[in-house]
Design a protein around this nucleic acid. Structure first.
Lengths: 329, 329
DNA sequence: ATCGGCTCTGACAGCGCTGTCAAGTGCTGT
DNA sequence: ACAGCACTTGACAGCGCTGTCAGAGCCGAT
């Protein structure tokens, strides 16, 4: 009942252990006949190479670690999809872990990946401080997704939050709205860029920006929404820094009897599954997360391959997805 | 720049390699003084035990693998929270992977966990066939969360879907509704039990059950909702097999101008984060997923510990969370 | 002085595999 | 019959650690 080893396979196939190893490593110096005998024997015994041993001996694991900052945020699963797809195509395994929203746990997760001997680490929505990231990058190839970093050792993949903020704002302006308020994401990743995208777009059109400081949570959005709805003269449109907060805003507006989009328009950011729900149908800025995940894998493997010294910072263009929460004035 | 080994730590601490190993393994046969010297040296060098090597030598990894069937379903992250918490307390690491909704990938994920040498595997929402699960269980301790299984080798942790279905139905009956329709979850996990909970409760109260066959998706809910809303005499209440479909139903009803809960009541199942969103505020049956995750870890570790032969099947009681989508007739 | 009791050392045998190498083996072509 | 080629073997060192054991060194207790 104990797991078969190479030795067992070699014996069963009537060939040497060295040959079995060659087959398992996909060497081309093996005759087709032998290869098949080995594979047949392996299949029959249910043999699978012991990764720990392989890794110990070979110094590489063909495995990358993916740390998602928050499993509950629908942003991440889609990134994971892209990562998984790209990694699998490249013959790599993906191990996941969550930071459970805490920087310390995130660090912990990365450490245990390193202890396990992954070839590289992908961090999505990392809370870890920039300097910690630099340190990590000295020990293992690191790519960060969804956070802007000016680093020479950590690669990043982001969407262009500035352009996204502008996109959302101009969409509202195009619809004829003028008193457009932005509810921002506080310290959240990309928040400041989205904010400046908004402000710039407003000023470019001769409008006065107004930012309400909040966070990337439904609760914060709810509060901000209620506050705006309670005003004597509510705004004509609201651009919220992410979908979750935007959905909170919708709730806050509804509490005060304001109808969307009849009374005012709302636009979110991230185009998460939430936005697509028919009952919500939130106009939102989409960042192609799947592509971001794939791109991050490419970048990471490039670095693992050793082809590159300097850091690469990819920025992909966001796009607007129009739904039912935004309408002409 | 290469990673320090025990040898290095021993040298730096001026002690033997064997002693360092003892310290790392937490042996009590080490004097406090030596222990501290070793730990200090390790900290200074940034030494961390190589898990692959440790595992290879010790035949155990203090790691469990968690396979989530679908990252996009908000059901799973919360299970993962519980798993992570319980495992960490027990000194175990958790590695995650997703089946990306495909049974084959799920199998693949489990296989690679086994190759890595995890001590046990947790499957949440597994699509793998029952017989495959049995086979897996012969190779590694397995616990399945969220799927009812009559197995003698696989442990399971579930909520009592039958009681949950009854709970939701009786809630609606208590509110005075009589024409209550159930939109079911097709082949989905727990769907058939929820359905019989509904039917039994209806009959117990002298009411005629009516089941509309659907799936655990928003799309299916949307279709069913539209269909019901289009009837000459729509039902007074709807119990939907899960939240996602329930949200679809809400959308479908709204399309036809039906107001919830004024015109009819809607109850979902799972009490996912979706249900809690203010703007949705769906009455739903809650299964304490965090507890389920913790329980699953307990059960798994019990088996890993070797204390048990037979299988254990835990069933936890669901509870109803009342929100804004259900009201008296 | 003697005798445990602790603590520590050094050595050794693995764990299952990689990776390299010299030394075959059998077969082909000439 | 012999070189040349393609494939295969056996051996060995090593990856970083565990786990065990005999024995050394040192202490206080008797």
């Amino acid at each position: 009942m104990t797991k078969p080893t190479m030795e067992d396979v070699a014996r069963a196939a009537g060939l040497s252990r060295a040959l079995v190893s060659l087959v398992m490593r996909g060497s081309d110096k093996v005759s087709d006949a032998s290869r098949e005998r080995v594979l047949a024997a392996a299949a029959e015994l249910g043999y699978r190479p012991n990764l720990a041993a392989r890794h110990l001996a070979s110094k590489r694991s063909l495995t990358i670690g993916l740390v998602l900052n928050d499993l509950h945020n629908p942003f991440f699963p889609e990134v994971a999809d892209g990562v998984h797809a790209a990694a699998t195509e490249a013959g790599y395994h993906v191990l996941m872990n969550s930071g459970y929203l805490r920087g310390a746990l995130e660090r912990e997760a990365v450490e245990s990946f390193i202890d396990l001997g992954v070839d590289g680490v992908l961090l999505a929505g990392a809370r870890i401080s920039a300097s910690d990231l630099e340190q990590l990058a000295a020990r293992v190839p690191v790519t960060v997704i969804g956070r802007h970093l000016r680093s020479t050792s950590v690669d990043t993949v982001n969407n262009d939050d500035l352009a996204g903020g502008r996109l959302a704002t101009e969409h509202l302006i195009d619809l004829g709205h003028r008193r457009i308020v932005h509810i921002d994401g506080g310290q959240g990743a990309g928040s400041s860029q989205r904010r400046s995208g908004y402000s710039t777009a407003m000023r470019d059109h001769g409008l006065e920006p107004e930012v309400i400081s909040a966070q990337f949570t439904e609760e914060a959005g709810l509060r901000a929404g209620r506050r705006l709805a309670g005003r004597a003269q509510p705004p004509e449109a609201i651009f919220v820094a992410n979908d979750l907060a935007a959905v909170g805003v919708l709730g806050g507006l509804a509490d005060h009897g304001l109808r969307v989009p009849d009374d005012l328009s709302v636009v979110g950011y991230d185009n998460t599954s939430l936005a697509g729900i028919h009952h919500i149908s939130l106009t939102s800025v989409d960042q192609d997360r799947q592509t971001m995940g794939r791109l991050a894998v490419d970048v990471l493997l490039e670095r693992i391959g050793g082809g590159r010294r300097g850091a690469v910072h990819h920025v992909i263009a966001p796009s607007l997805v129009r739904r039912a929460t935004s309408a002409p004035r």
